[in-house]
Write a protein that binds this DNA or RNA. Structure first.
Lengths: 200, 200
DNA sequence: AGGATTTTACAGCAGATGATACAAAAAGAT
DNA sequence: ATCTTTTTGTATCATCTGCTGTAAAATCCT
């Protein structure tokens, strides 16, 4: 009968995610991961594999537990226009309140490793595609309710809201000021008030 | 009388910029810089200083020769709305045509080092502020000519177009497809056709 | 008690890292 | 020719890096 693990995998993975999220892949050494988790290198290797493998696991974990969970929660809201507003507001809130300027692990990774590592680029691309799909389908649904500007195609809306989110993530790392980010979001969010204006 | 330099500083700096631009700070070693420039470590140290110093110089050089020069050139166009369109188009063109997915050194650096290195964060912030100011003043000028939606303040426009650019830079690293990026830009660029629609 | 299995601790490896020290080289002046 | 100054080349340093090997530890079963 084997010796039991002395740590909880999910809790440890959260710490690993946090470390990579703050510093990125290259600037994080195995010893940084030891310090962040309180575990020895051998334990980390046994449970998660080598550095690149543990990074891939962390990225996938983040993608599932942060991005997808967030989207699932938001899609419980009944109104699609509210879903879009809420997602944007969540990102602005997170950035404004984070002294560590973490931003988003996926976006950070897209920049750091995306052009050079195919496997990681695939995880990144899947995550970004989910974000875009969220905006696309909720914009389309909002249009059907007369709550979104009909001059913008759902495809363009998905892409432009996604690009806005990416831009907000860059601001989260560089200038996480609420008024700046809200100002950045306002013109696109104005597309969602379209039906409220009783136009021409 | 001292031995003369065997290399041209500006040409070498271009190569250094290119290396850091492609791989970032942490993943670039001094030996990578040696290989990229064809110079020995001692020559690099004498001319540019240690790794972090040479990176700061590269970032500043990029900021001046890439961002500022680009903006200066674009502002020779007479129509402010065209300036905005052109800047966006330039970024989309560059990303669509770059097999190396370089993106933008400033944005890459904002993500990689921004939260952790104050001096570098300052160079980044200055550059991002120039981009925002470009959009802000040209949006305002376009409004005065009746070429931009008057419901959007120049401040919000500056911020939202900046955020769009940042988002496009993220796409440049992860998914540099022209139609995706043009779709992302289309709703904001539509603000510039406002006067053309002969609205209500 | 011993046996079996997995986990953890510890020591160490080969190579990489940013940087330094020192000698040789390049150039103009005397 | 020598002198002076800066640059380049080369060897090396101390430390760090991701990773491996091995022994001790933890657990249940017989």
């Amino acid at each position: 009968m084997a010796r039991p693990r002395s740590f909880d995998e999910a809790a440890t993975m959260e710490k690993i995610v946090r470390q990579f999220w703050a510093r990125g892949y290259e600037a994080t050494s195995i010893r940084d991961l030891e310090a962040a988790t309180g575990l020895g290198m051998t334990s980390l290797y046994n449970a998660f594999g080598g550095k690149r493998q543990v990074f891939c696991s962390a990225l996938t974990y983040y993608s599932k537990h942060r991005t997808q969970r967030c989207i699932e929660g938001i899609e419980r809201l009944p109104a699609p226009a509210d879903r879009i507003r809420t997602f944007v507001a969540r990102v602005i809130d997170a950035a404004s309140e984070d002294p560590d300027r973490l931003g988003c692990l996926v976006i950070n990774t897209a920049i750091e490793l995306g052009p050079h590592d195919e496997d990681i680029a695939t995880v990144v691309a899947d995550n970004l595609a989910e974000v875009e799909a969220f905006f696309r389908r909720n914009y389309e649904a909002a249009q059907k309710q007369g709550q979104a500007d009909p001059n913008v195609t759902p495809e363009d809306a998905g892409r432009s809201f996604s690009a806005l989110m990416f831009g907000l993530r860059v601001l989260a790392r560089s200038r996480p000021e609420r008024d700046v980010m809200e100002g950045a979001a306002r013109p696109l969010l104005a597309l969602l008030r379209y039906g409220d204006q009783g136009c021409c």
